[in-house]
Design a protein around this nucleic acid. Structure first.
Lengths: 141, 141
DNA sequence: CTGAAATTGATAATCATTATCAAAAGAATA
DNA sequence: TATTCTTTTGATAATGATTATCAATTTCAG
């Protein structure tokens, strides 16, 4: 696992357990995954993995800002490894999530407008809902 | 209730029941409200209102595009009456939601980037998470 | 190596949402 | 206005998701 992840865990008094490593790897392979997907993939590597362990770890990793939660309309929340800011294309039909780069003007614009409202902006989330190519091609509506 | 709401309900074969009217009014008074809040306020006006009725109606009104669901990190989904496109300031501490106008450049930018990825954009959701004035003043962190 | 503290796994408890269905109500039509 | 058909409601059971509990195990600092 990356040095900085280990460092961050230890800084917060969290231990580097094989379960944590497995969970982070599982999410990384998916790109974006919900709890069940993480559980299934993690279980494949680490047979004894418990669903409760996945929940507990995902929660603490989100608090540590190593993971980001994507709360989606109509689908269970997905989680991704925190990277540079970006936005998401979310298919309303199949629930797939794809990253896109959105101009950083948006972040600036958003932060500026927030401060006018006397709101301390910390992070911005942009989701574009619609239909992915696969679902359109297969005539799913 | 507004003519166009009645019209839209009837167009889709939905009846104009007092429960529906009450639920829409409750959401309108709140601005943004989750299921329990809607239920409590609606129940105050319409004593026999059932929680199941709130769930069923909110779901169908979202499908009709009269309501919009806001899926929030750490809080239960909130619902708002569909109006002109806008963004939201979401307080991580208290969960309050405030509307802000975000430049329509963003929508254009987003739609353009989506189409490059061969994605049919339908609607965009922008949430800015942070701390509201009240929570900062009261030292909540 | 040892011991304190955190973590895990199993599962019970809780909370949220959906399904079911008989009774009631809306609305189109005569 | 009465009739009839269809939707809706309310109550609650069933399901599904998440959190809490706790004894046994593991990590890791010293």
């Amino acid at each position: 696992m990356k040095i900085d992840v280990i460092k961050k865990l230890k800084e917060h008094g969290l231990k580097v357990t094989p379960q944590r490593v497995t969970i982070l790897n599982a999410i990384n392979e998916y790109g974006h995954a919900n709890i069940d997907e993480i559980y299934q993939k993690a279980k494949a590597t680490h047979y004894s993995m418990s669903l409760a362990t996945v929940y507990k770890n995902v929660t603490s990793l989100v608090e540590l800002n190593l993971l980001k939660e994507l709360s989606l309309n109509s689908f269970k929340s997905k989680y991704e490894i925190v990277k540079e800011p970006h936005s998401h294309l979310v298919c309303k039909k199949c629930g797939s999530v794809e990253d896109i780069e959105l101009s950083q003007e948006i972040e600036q614009n958003a932060a500026a407008l927030a401060s006018i409202k006397d709101f301390e902006a910390q992070d911005i989330e942009v989701e574009i809902y619609g239909l992915c190519r696969e679902c359109r091609e297969q005539g799913r509506v």
